[in-house]
Computed example of a mutant assay.
Amino acid sequence: MTTVVLADDEVLLRKALGALLPLEGDITVLAEAEDGEAAVRAVAEHEPDVLVIDLEMPGVDGLAAVERIRADRPDQVILMLTRHARPGVLRKALRLGVQGFVSKAAEPSQIASVVAALHAGRRWVDPDVSALALVDDCPLTEREVDVLRATSDGYSVADIAVRLHLAQGTVRNYLSNAMQKTQTRTRHEAARYAREHDWL
């Protein structure tokens, strides 16, 4: 049997998966979480074999939740669900050690089989998603992507510095470099440009 925590802000999808996964495989859903914050708490409380988590959620998103979970449970097996897997996001998720990546459009039976594969120690990345990851025409460094992502989430330079454990001057340097590379005038324009080009 494989135990699972489900984290997704879309109630209908989360409830459907919660009901269907046990029917598709030897899976027990221990808890459901409506956002990244709740996912961190649920994993700490229930210690599931596999965390199935949505990439895009309000507040603490999937990537931020995974970073926090990894700090406490470095061996936690994680399957990430997504609708739009931008190359930069996928690469960051893989760097964080996410073992599986699957489209939210996948059949519950496929998601159940991927959960079983991950629990058995294998990795699985949806072919469409992995094809996107190979498209690497982004001129931005990993840190420039990080500060632009935080900018697009509405954080100030001071907030970004705290979140990324950087000096404010360093954050400004990264933003300046990103603005030069994207040929934009403000950090918000640079963030918008990067998002439109699927770099975030």
Results as ranks from 00 to 15, higher is better:
C138L: 01
L166W: 15
G154F: 11
L94N: 00
D153S: 06
L164Q: 02
Q99R: 15
L175D: 05
Q76L: 05
Q99A: 07
L164A: 04
Q168N: 12
E144G: 05
A178L: 05
T184C: 04
S156D: 09
L175W: 03
S152C: 08
N177Y: 11
P74Q: 10
P74Y: 15
L134E: 11
E144Y: 04
R172M: 14
L118A: 07
D153P: 01
V129Y: 00
A71T: 15
R149E: 00
R122D: 14
P139D: 03
N177C: 13
V129Q: 00
S103C: 13
L90I: 03
R95L: 05
T151V: 10
A133M: 12
P87E: 03
R163C: 06
D159A: 11
G169V: 14
D75T: 14
I69D: 00
A93E: 00
T170K: 12
Q183I: 06
V89F: 00
L166D: 10
Q168W: 14
D136T: 13
L175H: 06
G169K: 14
I160G: 02
D146W: 00
S109H: 11
R122I: 14
R73W: 07
V102P: 00
A150M: 03
L166M: 15
D137M: 12
S109K: 15
D72H: 09
S113W: 06
G121D: 11
P108K: 02
A85H: 02
P139M: 06
V129N: 01
E142A: 08
Q180W: 11
Q180T: 12
Q180P: 10
G121M: 12
A120H: 06
D136M: 06
R122P: 05
L132S: 07
V98F: 04
A131R: 05
A131T: 11
V147Y: 00
R68S: 13
N173R: 08
A167N: 15
G88C: 03
R163Q: 07
R83W: 12
S103P: 13
V157Q: 08
L175K: 05
D126H: 08
L90F: 02
V114N: 03
G100Q: 05
